[in-house]
């Protein structure tokens, strides 16, 4: 964005800060959080734009070239709610409030112990003067970490009980991307914060990284026949590629015991680590076997949260054999 749109965006951001956010913050003695609040408003406005773009571009695509046609879309409504809570910053704010103090404490303790966590730029100083290269480097590192986080969320029983909420949807659409258990979000936020502590994330990149990841994730869940072409399908996770990750029935083989196609942005990770499954067919989506009841496919927000916790407790204290 340059010129006019930036001016409009910043003016709106400033107006919201001045009229909506600043008065209560000052009244509550939280004036030192004004800069963070200003960034939060940017996050919120970017979320509004993302929701608008997703609805205006991807929803027509789903209507024109659907993979699956359902008699009704009631089961999708809860995913729309998840998307709004996520994109407009409610869930990210909750995660930030829960995790930031912990990581500041750890970081502060490390500094007092004489250890400054390394930065990516300390290893590659050239990144400091090449913002685009720096952005791409962080994107690749985060996507690599996301691959492994995602893979662990399938292979560790307790995590899978939570992540299964995301997979319980049988009507997978562009909104399904944000359908996550809150504890799953917390685990994801924890992993992100660890990476940020280990290599440092430029604040200027943060929103950009989120926008790229979320846009591709929206796209990869879309219920539309959409091909990236013979080469593109190998470069970026497509709806067909990710649909196999959500497949009701997984391909046979030991390497697919916990699933396939874990990559979030770049399929190359699946290729390298032997979890890639490329085929032209398009499967149905959902959970065929546990750890959640079949009703999770259609239950509401709070019910799903509870079902996730029940699943989690079952992995910690399984029913004794009778």
């Amino acid at each position: 964005m340059t010129g006019g749109p930036v001016e409009i965006f910043v003016s709106l951001q400033g107006w919201l800060l001045d009229r909506v956010v600043q008065p209560p913050l000052l009244a509550l003695g939280l004036g030192s959080h004004l800069e963070m609040a200003f960034d939060g408003i940017e996050f919120f406005l970017c979320g509004v734009l993302q929701l608008a773009v997703a609805y205006l571009l991807l929803r027509p695509l789903e209507a024109l070239r659907p993979i699956e046609v359902w008699p009704d879309r009631k089961a999708v409504r809860v995913d729309v709610l998840y998307s709004f809570l996520d994109r407009l910053g409610v869930i990210p704010l909750l995660m930030f409030v829960l995790l930031a103090p912990l990581f500041v404490l750890v970081d502060g303790w490390l500094r007092f112990a004489g250890f400054i966590p390394p930065q990516l730029e300390d290893l590659f100083p050239v990144l400091e003067s090449w913002p685009l290269a720096s952005f791409f480097a962080y994107l690749v590192i985060f996507d690599f970490a996301e691959y492994w986080r995602h893979r662990f969320s399938h292979s560790l029983n307790w995590w899978w009980a939570l992540h299964a909420i995301h997979h319980s949807q049988r009507q997978m659409t562009l909104w399904t991307d944000s359908r996550n258990h809150l504890l799953d979000d917390l685990s994801n936020g924890f992993c992100f914060a660890v990476i940020a502590l280990l290599i440092g994330v430029p604040p200027g990149h943060f929103v950009g990284l989120l926008i790229v990841v979320r846009t591709v994730e929206n796209l990869s869940h879309v219920n539309a026949r959409l091909s990236f072409g013979p080469i593109g399908e190998h470069l970026l996770v497509s709806p067909r590629y990710h649909r196999w990750h959500h497949a009701l029935e997984l391909p046979a083989g030991h390497q697919f015991r916990h699933g396939c196609n874990f990559a979030v942005l770049f399929p190359v990770w699946d290729r390298i680590f032997g979890t890639q499954y490329l085929i032209q067919d398009i499967p149905s989506t959902g959970l065929a076997h546990g750890p959640l009841p079949e009703s999770a496919a259609r239950s509401g927000f709070w019910r799903q949260q509870w079902e996730g916790i029940e699943g989690l407790l079952a992995t910690i204290h399984p029913d004794p054999p009778r």
Partner: peptide, 26 residues
């Protein structure tokens, strides 16, 4: 520019921004 990680160079006679350079984080 603390969020961009850049510095803006400004000509104080013409008030024109004559350059923007990536520097560091915050």
């Amino acid at each position: 520019n603390s969020a961009d990680g850049t510095i803006s160079l400004i000509d104080t006679t013409t008030y024109e921004v004559t350059g923007k350079v990536a520097v560091c984080k915050e």
